[in-house]
Design a protein around this nucleic acid. Structure first.
Length: 544
RNA sequence: UGGGGAUUGGUGUAAUGGUAGCACGACUGACUCUGAAUCAGUUAGUAUAGGUUCAAAUCCUAUAUCCCCAGCCA
């Protein structure tokens, strides 16, 4: 069923293996910066990196790209590990940090200085920006570009020793201020940051930049294929330049693919972080969030996410995948194995006038098509709740639910007829008075009656009152932008209902359920007696 | 308007000079004690214009559109 993916990256790896360019194991890495929670876009990268290593017989590093102590923290480090493990991938002992290599990195920087390939620049940040040029104009060389090797070594050592304040000096690569690629216009390699690092503490006051760090870490770890997203394409020449200008006998190729785009949400740590910080959602694990923590809390399974990533594929094309594909993957993963029971989201009381309540307990399978899941007891009663939407005074054509005078089957129970609609002073429907057909009991129906349809229900005296949370799209538009983020939020994305579930659901050890006819629900791990709707069932009913 | 990328049904992708295929979606119908699932079917595409070739989504030349880059972020 699940065919092995074959995208341009896997084809390339296969080719590298066949040609002997790469000998032995394929080594990849997933290198998040611990400055936020992982989202489903990261899942694509995780599935790719861990996936190819698995397929081609290799391994994958989980490497924290922790070169900026101002933005990073241990809480993210832990959350990221939890998410990757939850997705089902193992890094075993290959968990590394860019900061593990700070000493090696420093030595490499000195190597560059010694080779006349890097210099300490004393320009201010503003001056550097001014002299960088623009997209169409070349930059101007720094007046400090010609410093001697000795002077650079001394200055760099003093930077490391903490003799300068933040921003006073930087180490820059000496490349080409006229390069059409702005990344090559003497990029900053090291900056001064008097900040405590979550791992190295106060040992360092200078921290290496991404472009200098990443390629060297890749090489040191023997990464055979360094996979990253498209926005780093322009950085590849710099990645290569660094490795070409130090004495390194290993040079991974950087291969870029497009990031995942998903309708009606945002997939950028910056924007997601903003939603959390501004209190627009309840947290990183708000079930409306596309974060792995949010998806998990909503009830989305790792298998569904992996299948989604597989189906989305890996290319260099910009994309915005429809939510329906994710929903399909979720339903498919839950379909065969999750228990099915009854829950009522919007209760309407039904009184069965001719039923004598004697504690009758009915029974039904947990899954009509999967008997392995067993059966559960279903207490009946003279007072029930059905879904308010399952009754109407004015049934449209092909209405298969309840209406005055109509027959409907209560799932796994009896056929009932609606005899009377009781309303309050305002005309709101208060309750339905129905009669049941005693000989129509599910499994031994001798009534010969053909009801309109089947409706779910719970018995009023045994049902468990629960809170049910329904989630819609977080945004009103398919492509919410950074500029209009707040306005684009759909205030109706969360609906809280006071409903009921049958007792067997309440007492089950499972936490995933299908509420028949309504969708898949997940018991909230934090909030007691609360069920999150993971995804609704497909609904092809069109009135009219 | 400098540089780097990308354009195949509504959406995501496959086809690597030789039958434009798959999936999601949408739409029909069958079945149904879930308007689900399942089953059967329908739908719609190579950005544009030239060229090379027996043959072009694929190669060439223009054009158009979209994305990324001017952090001491990653």
């Amino acid at each position: 069923m699940t065919q092995p993916a074959s995208d341009f990256i896997r084809q390339r790896i296969k080719q590298d293996l066949d040609s002997g360019l790469v000998e032995g194991a394929i080594v990849t890495r997933f290198p998040p910066e611990p400055n936020g929670y992982l989202h489903i876009g990261h899942a694509k990268s995780i599935c790719l990196n861990f996936g190819v290593a698995e397929e081609f017989g290799g391994y994958t590093y989980l490497r924290f790209d922790d070169t900026n102590p101002l933005k990073e923290s241990d809480t993210y480090v832990e959350a990221i590990q939890q998410d990757v493990a939850w997705l089902g991938f193992e890094w075993s002992d290959r968990l590394t940090n860019a900061s593990d290599y700070f000493d090696a990195l420093y030595a490499r920087a000195v190597e560059l200085i010694d080779g006349g390939k890097a210099y300490v620049c004393s320009l201010t940040g503003e001056e550097i920006r001014q002299s960088r040029g623009t997209l169409t104009e070349p930059g101007k060389e720094s007046p400090y570009r010609g410093r001697s090797v000795e002077e650079n070594r001394e200055l760099f050592e003093r930077m490391r020793a903490g003799e300068f304040a933040d921003g006073e000096q930087v180490l820059r690569a000496k490349i080409d201020m006229a390069s059409p690629n702005i990344n090559m216009r003497d990029p900053v390699l090291y900056r001064i940051r008097h900040a405590t690092h979550q791992r190295t503490g106060d040992k360092w006051v200078i921290y290496p930049m991404y472009d200098f760090t990443h390629c060297i870490c890749d090489a040191l770890e023997g990464i055979t294929h360094s996979l990253c997203t498209l926005e780093f394409e322009d950085h590849r020449p710099l990645y290569d330049w660094v490795l070409d200008n130090i004495n390194m006998n290993f040079h991974p190729p950087q291969i870029e693919f497009s990031r995942l785009g998903l309708e009606y949400t945002v997939l950028s740590k910056r924007l997601l972080s903003q939603l959390v910080t501004q209190g627009l959602v309840e947290g990183w694990d708000d079930p409306r969030m596309p974060t792995l923590a949010g998806l998990r809390r909503r009830g989305v399974t790792p298998g569904a996410i992996r299948e989604f990533c597989r189906r989305v594929g890996v290319t260099k094309q910009d994309n915005r995948v429809e939510m329906s594909l994710l929903e399909f993957c979720i339903r498919r993963d839950l379909e065969g194995t999750v228990r099915r029971g009854m829950g009522v989201l919007n209760p309407l009381k039904v009184r069965i006038s001719n039923y004598r309540d004697d504690g009758e307990v009915l029974e039904g399978p947990w899954h009509a098509q999967n008997p392995d899941l067993g059966r559960r007891e279903l207490p009946f009663g003279a007072e029930l709740y059905i879904e308010r939407e399952d009754f109407t005074d004015a049934p449209p054509k092909k209405w298969r639910r309840l209406s005055p005078g109509a027959l409907v089957r209560l799932r796994y129970a009896y056929i009932i007829r609606c005899d009377e609609v009781v309303r309050d002073a305002r005309g709101e429907i208060q309750e339905l008075v129905c009669s049941y057909i005693p000989e129509s009991k599910s499994g031994s129906d001798t009534s010969g009656l053909k009801p309109n349809g089947v409706v779910h229900w719970v018995a009023a005296d045994t049902a468990v009152a629960v809170e049910i949370r329904l989630y819609g799209r977080l945004f009103k538009v398919p492509d919410p932008g950074a500029a209009t983020l707040v306005d684009d939020i759909d205030p109706a994305s969360l609906t809280i209902r006071s409903g009921y579930v049958e007792p067997a659901i309440h007492h089950s050890d499972d936490d995933h359920f299908q509420f028949e006819r309504l969708g898949y629900f997940f018991r909230d791990p934090e909030r007691a007696n609360t069920y999150n709707r993971t995804v609704s069932l497909r609904d092809s009913w069109k009135p009219g």
